[in-house]
Simulated scan of single mutants.
Amino acid sequence: MSEKQVTATLQFTPKDYSSFFLAGALCCTVTHGAMTPIDVVKTRIQIDPEFKGQSMLAGTRQVISKEGPKALLTGFGPTAVGYLVQGGAKFAGYEYWKKKGVEFAGGPENSVQYRTAIYLGAASVAEFFADILLTPLEATRIRLVSERNYATGLVSGFTRLAREGGVRELYAGFLPILCKQIPYAIGQFTVNEFCHEAAYRTMSEDTRNNMTASSRFGLNLGSGIIAGFAAAILSHPADTLLSQINKGHGPTGSMPHRLAVLAREAGFRGLFAGLGPRMVMTAGLVSGQFLLYGAIKEAMGAPPGLEIHKEDSSKS
């Protein structure tokens, strides 16, 4: 992308950011909501001794046989609402902080050499603020999934958790959720950016500017799947610890101490329990989110996101 093109994109308006927020909110709530059954089984494998060591298929069969098909939708309410607000804040925040990173680097031309730092910083800061909104709802979801008959749904589960534990209990998982979600966001956005850059560097400018809809779809889908695998691997140990914390496992004391003890008890293998199904789930989540995000933005007439890729000068 030329400096002139990037500079034009820097002029995002409040309306543009509201479009980014709405597109991010919708793409995340739709994809995370659709993945609820997989997440239910994954969480059970992580924290329920009865499911320890089981495959995704075996775990699904056990949930259905013991609790019925409806149990696979446990936690759908807090999942949908939590990722509605988190997704909007994350995607709009990433666009905002990436723009600020370009400005801080001294403009579009200088930002190319610092693009990795810009991607990492934008993803991390955007996710931090998004997680403030997500954490209480994620705590509610995990409690509903891990403790059968805890509550009937989002409102009753959230109310009970707030009443019995207060703000401290609602945010008990804030540190581990940061440890989970920030690496997740880094994998999601940074790897996606570099997958696009790698693809674009094999194309001439004319080819890139005249990509067919099917070619662009394939590029976005493939980049999203690879980014999803990276996000799952980077964030899975903290995801396991988050499930344990919200279940009430571990010693008393400060959160870093509890996390350290739980990590030692789980060991390397335990921290990566359930990684297979989570990689499948996350690849679907991330690729679906990027596809929906782009489609929703386009439908609303929002501008494309800022691109600061390093292009191959030999291509013309």
Rank of each mutant, 00 (worst) to 15 (best):
E3Y: 02
K4N: 01
A8D: 11
T9L: 15
L10K: 08
P14C: 02
Y17A: 00
Y17T: 01
Y17S: 00
S19N: 09
G24C: 04
C28Q: 10
T29V: 07
T29L: 15
T29F: 10
T31H: 01
G33N: 12
M35S: 09
D39E: 09
K42D: 03
K42E: 10
P49Q: 11
S55A: 11
S55Q: 13
S55Y: 13
M56H: 13
G59K: 10
S65V: 10
G68Q: 06
L72H: 07
L73P: 07
F76I: 15
G77F: 05
P78L: 07
T79S: 10
A80N: 03
V81T: 07
G82Y: 12
G82Q: 06
V85A: 01
A89V: 15
A92I: 05
E95W: 08
E95A: 14
G101H: 03
G106W: 12
G106L: 05
G106C: 08
E109G: 08
E109P: 02
N110T: 05
Q113L: 05
A117V: 15
Y119Q: 15
L120Q: 00
G121M: 12
A123I: 07
S124H: 06
F129H: 01
F129N: 00
D131R: 05
L133K: 08
L133H: 03
T135G: 01
T140K: 03
R141T: 04
R141Y: 04
R141L: 06
I142R: 02
L144P: 04
S146T: 13
Y150N: 00
Y150R: 03
A151V: 07
A151L: 09
T152P: 00
S156T: 13
F158R: 02
E164Q: 13
G166Y: 11
V167H: 03
V167L: 13
R168T: 13
G173S: 15
L175D: 00
P176L: 08
A185D: 06
I186C: 11
I186N: 11
T190Q: 08
N192G: 08
E193A: 14
F194M: 04
C195W: 12
H196V: 14
H196T: 09
E197N: 11
M203S: 05
E205V: 14
N210L: 06
S215H: 14
S215G: 03
G222Y: 06
S223R: 04
I225Y: 11
I225N: 01
I226K: 02
I226T: 12
A230W: 09
A232L: 07
I233R: 05
H236C: 03
P237E: 02
L241A: 11
L241N: 08
I245D: 03
G250R: 02
G253M: 07
G253W: 09
S254A: 12
S254W: 12
M255R: 07
M255S: 04
P256W: 11
R264M: 09
E265C: 05
G267V: 13
R269M: 09
A273Q: 14
P277R: 11
P277G: 08
R278I: 04
M279F: 09
G284A: 10
G284C: 14
G284V: 14
S287I: 13
Q289Y: 05
L291V: 08
Y293T: 01
E298R: 15
E307F: 06
E307G: 01
E311S: 02
S313L: 12
S316K: 12
S316N: 07
